[in-house]
Design a protein around this nucleic acid. Structure first.
Lengths: 345, 345
DNA sequence: GGCATGAATGTGACCGGTCACACAAGCAGG
DNA sequence: CCTGCTTGTGTGACCGGTCACATTCATGCC
């Protein structure tokens, strides 16, 4: 007992039962709002609960009931805008369903490291959501043992290994197609592409959409420039592209890459959009405030996260039948960074 | 049994025991690497484990052992750079100690909402880390029931309610002081400040550091302009400041605010740093790639997160005595956005 | 040979809940 | 008055592990 007269260590339902002079089962009934408890008894029990500062152990509850009510999200990253927004969406939905959200970061794509992390997540007992936008995530999704409820957030459903599981996605191919069309329609002869790292060795969805638009327009198809996730990679790529006077339009795999590209163009003295147009991807919060403001493709990552959780939730509680594969539709937001090519007069 | 001959539902240690013809206790010993198990027995048990696809239930383990090995992080935000980096640091350290990391988002600072979220986190059983950079977080930290191991990531230790608990922090006051000194030493008459939302009603650490530097230099002390967390708030604040021709130096509470301010200055036709210098805070990844690149105060948020977990870890496993209050030292990174004021000749 | 010692293994209770079922009391209908 | 159903409550087993202790057997030492 401490100063206030409460026991300092957690009380169990049997302690409460003793204090209220009922059986532990009755306490359980009160906690769970079971109807057939006499009001006067309920009062006594509630008073005892208050008195002892009882809180039901989530662990014991999970063990006894079999229901775990938790999601573990496996992701390679939590600082980049897209990933973080997905997490936010999942958390929102999870909280609403009073689920707990845990996060496991896949630090490397190394086979044993991924396997270990997947094991840990699987052992936790709840459901899994795997963000498979990168090699580590893809491998993790494939490694999830059978029998564990899992939803993948994938780049391209059909091509992803382990794609037989429920998934959510945004139509990146279509989005890249639109963005490329936008630039071509402004009069650019072709569009260069700075790619984010792909989830698999096969052609990434964004790359595919970009290429399709070029092909359809009969435009030249330059080799995509490989970037990273952050602005540094964009900067490196941008320096190469800036040196090529023929380049007038650049599509970037995300807004951070676009930032790096813009910086490189600026240093090379090539005005945006006067000489070169730049289009980003994801419409991160800062895109609108850059100078020039960045044309980008808006993605509803938060909604994607919510959808992923919804799917998982349906999977776990058999009751709710699951709407199979929600798709969110990206939207092109045109700003200052894209315009017509310089007149070659 | 499924096609492969394995049971599809999880096997318990008693199942394994039966298969290996030993007692469940022996299985437990093998799992936990207890020394006194005959090698041949160990072999049999391991074979049975493999055969049945046994994985130890984290839930049951936690219940029986009393040790939970999990941290729940309560935070108002996960998308902003600082918060996300702290989370990353915590996750890193947690994973290394094979702890699980859960996240609870404090969506509003509303009293009952916060209380509910804190309850959920407390019920989970493990330790807690509360990021108390904002009113929601501060309230949450204060609401954590006694007896639950908790570490606060705070703005200013002494002033934070619930500050009797272990905490970590970075010296924001000192950092703001340095940044302001930098601008003053370039020759600016005074420095204006666009503030992030404060964690309490009392003067925020960054504001205090800025003010101290001004006072020390005998400079005028303009009212700080209240901002938000994102670039939109900076933009609004920036428009006001841009309209005032006397403004030549602006310190911003974070890099997103600085971005918005820079945009507003640009739109108002006031060159940076030619007419106005801008300094940010936190050194987010994009700061270096903006045009002009942004002078900012680098913060080791990841290290801060690791330290927070370290503290909590020591708290939970009594064994390790706890180094009380780690402090990380911010560092000013000077870039293009800050320079001497326009000559007033 | 007798006995303490340690290695290898098993038994029962317990962690804090839930679940299935039993049981007493109250009240209806035939 | 007896049967049958509902309401309110209690009992024992169980979820899947761990812990403390008991047991067996081989070995070392006097």
């Amino acid at each position: 007992m401490n100063v206030t007269g409460h026991t300092s260590r957690t009380a169990s339902i049997r302690d409460v039962a003793a204090a209220a002079d009922v059986s532990y089962q009755t306490v359980s009934r009160v906690i769970n709002g079971h109807p057939s408890v006499k009001p006067s008894t309920r009062e006594r029990v509630l008073a005892a609960i208050e008195e002892l500062g009882f809180r039901r152990s989530a662990t014991a509850h999970a063990l006894a009931s079999g229901r775990v009510r938790s999601v573990t999200v496996l992701t390679a990253n939590i600082t980049h805008h897209g990933y973080a927004s997905i997490l936010q969406g999942i958390e929102e939905a999870a909280r609403a369903a009073s689920y707990t959200m845990a996060i496991g970061v896949l630090e490397s794509a190394d086979e044993t490291a991924v396997r270990a992390e997947v094991q840990r997540a699987a052992d936790a007992g709840g459901g899994l959501i795997v963000i498979a936008y990168d090699p580590a995530g893809v491998r993790a999704l494939a490694d999830v043992p059978a029998g564990i409820p899992v939803v993948g957030v994938v780049e391209t459903p059909a091509r992803t290994p382990g794609g037989d599981r429920p998934w959510v996605w945004t139509d990146d191919r279509e989005a890249a197609y639109e963005a490329t069309r936008h630039l071509l329609s402004l009069g650019h002869e072709t569009v260069h592409y700075v790619a984010i790292p792909s989830s698999t060795r096969r052609t990434a969805a964004r790359t595919a959409g970009w290429r399709a638009a070029l092909r359809e327009a009969g435009a030249a198809e330059p080799r995509p420039v490989q970037g990273t996730w952050g602005p540094a990679g964009g900067y490196t790529a941008g320096r190469k592209l800036a040196a090529d006077a023929a380049v007038t339009a650049i599509l970037c795999g995300n807004d951070d890459l676009a930032l790096g590209v813009m910086r490189a163009l600026h240093e090379a003295g090539r005005p945006i959009p006067g000489e070169v147009s730049v289009v980003g991807f994801d419409d991160a919060p800062h895109a609108a405030y850059l100078t020039p403001s960045l044309t980008s493709v808006r993605q509803d990552f938060t909604g994607l996260g919510r959808a992923a959780f919804g799917l998982l939730h349906g999977l776990v509680e058999q009751s709710a039948p699951v709407a199979p594969h929600p798709v969110s539709v990206p939207e092109l937001v045109v700003r200052e960074s894209s315009g017509p090519p310089p007149s070659t007069a």
